[in-house]
Computed example of a mutant assay.
Amino acid sequence: MNRPAARLLLALYQPDIAQNAGAMLRTCACLGVDAAIIEPAGFRIGDSRFRRAGLDYLDAVSVARHDSWDRFETWRKASGRRLALLTTKGETALWDFGFRAHDILLVGRESAGAPDEVAAAADARLRIPIRPPLRSLNVGIAAAIALVEALRQIDGLP
């Protein structure tokens, strides 16, 4: 199958829960979105919990691994791609952001989100509005919501 050189990508910043990461990669496979894992992860990529959550779908998704945030950023800047961070501290509602086909949607660690240096590097900091006083959605659920919105906007839904 011919694929474009670059397409929407979901990047996981130092994920620390294997099951969430596996489920997010499974979502990427189902939606036709590429993925990246920014190390260090809190588990081995071969972890049985990661593989169980991703099932056999992990073979159907393109996953790049980056040794560090700095290496990921070097790659991203060289590729000229925008970075949109999903964060509870985002100043822009997800629905108000205009996605492009080659954007990178970044999610932070389940336990700590993304550090200030990562947030500062993002071209946009997006939040999914939820009812107060609740704090946040599960990172995998948030990623799925954001991916579907991005794909809807760029007419990329399967």
Rank of each mutant, 00 (worst) to 15 (best):
A150T: 07
R44I: 00
I141V: 15
P133A: 00
V61N: 05
A23S: 15
A18S: 07
D56K: 08
N138V: 05
F97E: 11
L83R: 08
L126F: 04
A21W: 07
G140C: 13
A78Y: 06
G80W: 09
G140W: 08
L55H: 11
C28R: 12
I38S: 00
G98E: 14
L25D: 09
L126E: 04
A64N: 14
A146W: 02
I37V: 15
A120N: 15
R65V: 10
G22W: 02
S136E: 05
Y13H: 14
H66V: 01
G42V: 00
P158Q: 09
I130N: 06
A150M: 03
N20S: 09
L25M: 15
V63G: 06
R65C: 13
S111I: 02
D103Q: 09
G140D: 02
G80T: 10
G46W: 06
R127Q: 05
L105A: 03
A23L: 14
R81F: 07
T87G: 02
F99C: 05
A84D: 07
A84K: 06
S111N: 08
R81L: 05
G32M: 00
A11K: 03
L55I: 08
G140A: 14
P4S: 13
E91I: 10
G90C: 04
N2K: 13
V139K: 11
V61A: 03
A114S: 09
N138A: 05
A6W: 11
A78L: 13
D47K: 05
V107R: 00
L147F: 01
A150G: 10
S136G: 09
D56Y: 11
P15L: 00
A121V: 08
K89L: 07
D123L: 00
A119K: 10
R51W: 00
C30E: 10
W95K: 14
G140F: 01
L25S: 09
A93V: 11
L151A: 01
L126Y: 06
R44Y: 05
M1F: 12
I130M: 10
K77S: 11
P115T: 10
R3D: 01
Q19R: 11
F97S: 02
S111A: 12
T92Q: 07
F72I: 01
S79P: 06
E91P: 04
A41L: 04
H102P: 09
R65H: 13
G22H: 05
G54A: 10
E39L: 08
A36I: 07
P40Y: 04
L94Q: 06
H66I: 00
D116A: 11
A5T: 14
E39G: 12
I145R: 02
R152V: 03
T92P: 02
L85S: 04
A146P: 09
A120C: 01
E39N: 11
L94F: 05
E110W: 06
K77H: 11
L151P: 10
F97N: 04
G42D: 02
A29K: 10
Q153H: 04
E110D: 06
I104K: 08
D123Y: 08
G90Q: 04
L58I: 12
I145N: 01
W69P: 03
Y57F: 15
F97M: 03
G140T: 14
L83Q: 07
E110Q: 06
E149V: 12
G80C: 05
A144V: 07
G54Q: 04
M24D: 12
K89D: 07
A64W: 11
L86Q: 05
T92M: 02
A120D: 14
L58P: 13
A150F: 03
F50E: 00
D47I: 02
A6D: 12
E110R: 01
T74S: 05
